[in-house]
């Protein structure tokens, strides 16, 4: 099958190019830029998790950042207690996964409609914000780790060579770890989308009623998609917490929860590359604007976002793809093949 082959070829090209880029960048850029890119990698993993659950499974999870935050906290608490990052990374993925499984079970098996799913995931995030905020008292300890309320958990141990806490990652190593993590997550999600499960969740996005009439238990598939996305977001949170050796409740704030939604929309819903692009554009923009200090950053970003949604409602990648496809169609009037969504 030609379609299958070209997608694999595309994947190989992406992996090769990204690898070369990741290896070169630290030689070219100053440490500031490397740190900023590392942060963007962790944000991009969060964006990918939303791109998956929203763009492919059609579940608008307004509280996707909550799993990012839970992952970060779980990593921090475990790493502080055990002094080794390996079990902490596992905890950073496992805890949000289990949390999502439990939470999602009640949400999806109750057959809540889309809008309620959006609202309830947001409310869940805001409750976590309040809860983590009031943990300043010393009684709130997980083992040796103080949760610290709005001040968060400082001095989180960085990722180390398994079993050897004294061999830990510095900024350069962290850049590679974050970069290759993002690449791995991208490849993993691409792969999932090609499996039967991936096709089923796309079918659910297109027509949930029809899926049920065919015999698919959509509650189960929604739950699974939600759980996969939570695991990915949690992993992003692990990388993020490593980036500044710190985690605090601001990841559960409304403003933070809104960010991945904007990244995904700007880059393009229904693609994976788009949300990564969106993340990089917007984080870089807000950093640059922050440096200028001439205008209120949030105001300007809001304005940019509004214009963007009005002018390029589909997002960057789908718009560019449509332009290219139209040109191709004009060049040769032959219609062929599948219109599988790639990105």
């Amino acid at each position: 099958m030609i379609g299958r082959l070209s997608i694999d070829g595309q994947m190989l090209a992406v992996v090769t190019l990204s690898t070369i880029l990741l290896l070169i960048l630290p030689q070219v850029f100053e440490i500031d830029t490397i740190l900023q890119l590392t942060l963007n990698f962790s944000f991009s993993i969060l964006a990918l998790s939303l791109a998956f659950v929203w763009g492919y499974a059609g579940i608008f999870s307004f509280g996707q950042a909550a799993f990012f935050g839970i992952g970060g906290y779980a990593y921090a608490a475990t790493a502080i207690n055990l002094g080794d990052s390996t079990p902490a990374i596992v905890a950073g993925v496992l805890v949000p996964t289990l949390f999502a499984a439990l939470f999602g079970y009640f949400v999806f098996y109750a057959r809540l409609t889309k809008i309620y799913v959006a609202v309830i995931t947001l409310v869940m995030t805001l409750i976590l914000y309040k809860f983590m905020g009031q943990t300043a008292k010393p009684d709130y300890m997980i083992g040796n780790a103080r949760l610290g309320g709005y001040n968060g958990i400082p001095a989180v141990p960085p990722i180390n060579v398994p079993g050897q806490p004294h061999l830990f990652a510095g900024p350069d190593e962290m850049f590679y770890i974050a970069g290759f993590s993002l690449l791995a997550v991208y490849v993993l999600l691409r792969w999932i989308l090609g499996t039967r499960f991936g096709k089923v969740i796309i079918g659910m996005r297109e027509n949930e009623k029809r899926m049920e009439l065919l015999g698919f238990d959509t509650r189960l598939y929604k739950l699974l998609a939600f759980v996969v996305a939570a695991a990915v977001a949690g992993f992003g949170g692990v990388v993020f917490t490593n980036w500044n050796a710190f985690i605090d409740p601001h990841v559960f704030q409304l403003a933070f929860s809104a960010q991945p939604i904007i990244w995904v929309m700007i880059g393009g819903l229904g693609t994976l590359a788009g949300p990564i692009l969106g993340t990089f554009i917007l984080s870089t923009l807000s950093l640059e604007l922050g440096v200028q200090k001439a205008l209120d950053v949030n105001l300007l970003l809001g304005a940019i976002f509004t214009f963007f949604v009005l002018l390029v409602p589909q997002g960057i990648i789908p718009t560019v793809r449509n332009l290219l496809e139209n040109r191709e169609a004009a060049a040769s009037n032959k219609t062929d093949g599948t219109t599988e969504s790639r990105g």
Partner: peptide
């Protein structure tokens, strides 16, 4: 008609077939 609008005919049929078969 209740179909998968954003997908191709082939993808529509593949989903239908994979409901109860592998």
């Amino acid at each position: 008609p209740s179909v998968f609008d954003g997908l191709t005919v082939h993808e529509n049929l593949t989903l239908a077939a994979s409901a109860r078969h592998r």
